[in-house]
Amino acid sequence: MAYLRVDNVTKTYASQKALDKVTLEVPGQSIYGLLGPNGAGKTTLIRIINMITRPDSGEVFIDGHPLTREDIGNIGYMPEERGIYKKMKVGEQAIYLARLKGLSKADALKKLKFWFDRLEIGSWWNRKVEELSKGMQQKVQFIVTILHEPKLLIFDEPFSGFDPINVNILKDEIRYLNKQGATIIFSTHNMASVEEICDHITLIDKSRNVLSGEIHEIKDQFKTHTFNIAYHSETALTSILNPSDYRIVKQEKLRDGFSADIQLLNGTTPNRLLTQLLPKIEIVAMQEILPSLNDIFIEVVNNNNRSAHE
């Protein structure tokens, strides 16, 4: 059952629609990607889930009941950068925010010690936040967000200030929290950064939900039956393959042999492709080309635009 359900939510700012009848379901204990370009309405949706703004119409349900103030205490929200006092010392601030969320001082200290050690930032305890780099600040922010062990964690553009090593550290921690039972929502315009970690996604474009679902299903749905083969042979592929069943998308000479992307048409199977090719050329490798989220997104957005124009 869905842990969080956004039902037909619409929000208009002055003259501009930020969200237009958005509906989506976040399954319990999933890692959910909320994807879309800048200004699509992701942050507005997150702010509605956090009850920071109210929707003009529609409703949000959590665990089966309409969202209330008390539920917000069970959400950890990390806004895009910032969200902490620049002039305060790291440790003092972490304790303060933890206690505001209802932890006792001793509890907060214990948990903070655990997480500061885990992320190897214990030595920053007495430094002022403004002295830290952006990435370091985000680590502090991350800890502060998750410290009270909320059931739902929402990260808005969490990787923006990080180098690749720290992105991986953070992803590992998020997976760890997910295993501990937390449901996680990412919001980002950088599809590549969440592709491997999310199990469900929603694409938001121009204030609307244009695509929702499990990531494997979506990739299946959008796959173009295109295969990449690497081979040795001077023989032209066009002389082997019937153009009504195969379309050669791309062909190039590598340092050592050739590579070609071939799209299978009319329900042709990869096995048939192989049987056609094997007698004529020497195949080194063959692999299906799955669309990246980026490709899917561009395709969906373009379709969306086209249908809007028609």
């Binding site: 205490g73 929200y77 895009e80 967000t145």
Partner: peptide
């Protein structure tokens, strides 16, 4: 003004 522009409120408002 600092709390608002730093988005600290958004984090705190869930508990206060």
């Amino acid at each position: 003004s600092e709390e608002k522009s730093n988005r600290i409120v958004e984090v705190i408002i869930s508990s206060v």
